[in-house]
Design a protein around this nucleic acid. Structure first.
Lengths: 202, 202
DNA sequence: GGGAGCATGTAACGGGTTACATGATTGG
DNA sequence: CCAATCATGTAACCCGTTACATGCTCCC
């Protein structure tokens, strides 16, 4: 039953993600990595906590997928920069190629709450969906701005494509929220009629 | 800094989700709950492991949000059915109303891999996106079938609305995959031209 | 002077998973 | 008779988070 243990299981996805951040060639500190994660990965994957980035870097170093050195100047502040190794690059490549394509993880709290709509007042439900709509719109805006300023640099072609993908994703999310609001209106109207019928027949 | 501990923090979202499953009124066993989760929650939230459902039920019982009894007939097989209490129903209502609206959790492995497209062959990238497209299509089909057979029963209006929402969600996901495939084609063409230019200028 | 940002971690905890154990019933 | 399904749980483990500790530097 248990799938054979493969090389690509040796790291949790987050580990590969961090290694991926380093695969663009820069030498980066844990702190910088966190910031990069926060304004790229976050949009379509997720932003690990700072503490976990450090933990992940240690693991990566143990596997010789990254090397680190004390940043030369500015010696007093202890500052360690990490760089991907060829072994790390190879392993990452293999992971990208060979790891099974898994369905995205989606935990949609708003959908969950609408699903339980019979328990709350229609207005409260609307408000929840509206807040979500707002959020989707903000994300879309952010990503569209990011797309506009994206590097022309061929090294960033793929990230740029994913940013555009993200913008469309959140656009769809917003459209979905709008549609849901229309559905809610329809449900309220129907309930109104039902209630009216009950009253008439009483 | 730390947000004040609220009542709605007393359970992890999964706890509320399980309680939500019970809020439709049926008496259910842990096993049945798992199946319900697998063919409803799964589409927009996520399906907890069986073992966790039992753990969650225990917690819910400790909080008096559910009660349980040994199923009367069929005594030999130890079988315990759970039912939501009024306290549980109230708590769930409060959670639905008052818990902050949090952004959906999205961990999109496919996007992550495209983002690192510079490390793999274009064909391998296409294949990953195509597998994902396939998946999205299957989910859409499943949900559309579910929507078609959905209860007319007013008690299921909201679940039905969420099923339709899900169908549209995966439709969008498929469209997004298609668009991504077109982008990949464009990138390949551009890389071809770049390569050609390099050759000419050499 | 003090707050924001830079920088690195540790400790405790919790939520959730996999793997495992157990056994009865049903249907091909 | 054997496999699948029903049914319930425990134990080990790990991923990741929050909270905390520390201290520097830059700029208002």
């Amino acid at each position: 039953m248990a799938r054979a243990r493969h090389e690509f299981d040796e790291l949790a996805p987050t580990g590969w993600a961090v290694l991926g951040l380093l695969s663009f060639g820069n030498e980066l500190t844990g702190y910088e990595l966190k910031k990069w994660a926060d304004n790229s990965l976050r949009f379509f994957y997720w932003a690990p906590a700072t503490s976990q980035i450090y933990a992940e870097l240690k693991r990566l170093e143990r596997l010789s997928y990254v090397t680190s050195r004390e940043a030369a100047h500015d010696e007093l502040r202890n500052k360690r920069v990490y760089r991907i190794t060829t072994a790390g690059c190879d392993a990452l490549r293999r992971w990208l190629r060979d790891a099974p394509v898994e369905p995205p993880v989606l935990k949609h709290g708003v959908a969950l709450r609408v699903w339980l709509g019979h328990l709350v007042e229609p207005d409260e439900l609307r408000s929840i969906v509206e807040q979500h709509r707002q959020y989707a719109e903000e994300m879309q805006d952010e990503l569209e701005r990011a797309a506009a300023t994206a590097r022309r640099d061929p090294a960033w072609t793929y990230p740029a494509a994913v940013i555009r993908w993200g913008a469309r994703y959140y656009e769809a999310e917003r459209a979905l929220a709008d549609e849901m609001l229309r559905e809610l209106t329809a449900i309220e109207r129907a309930n109104g009629r039902r209630k009216a019928r009950r009253v008439r027949s009483a």
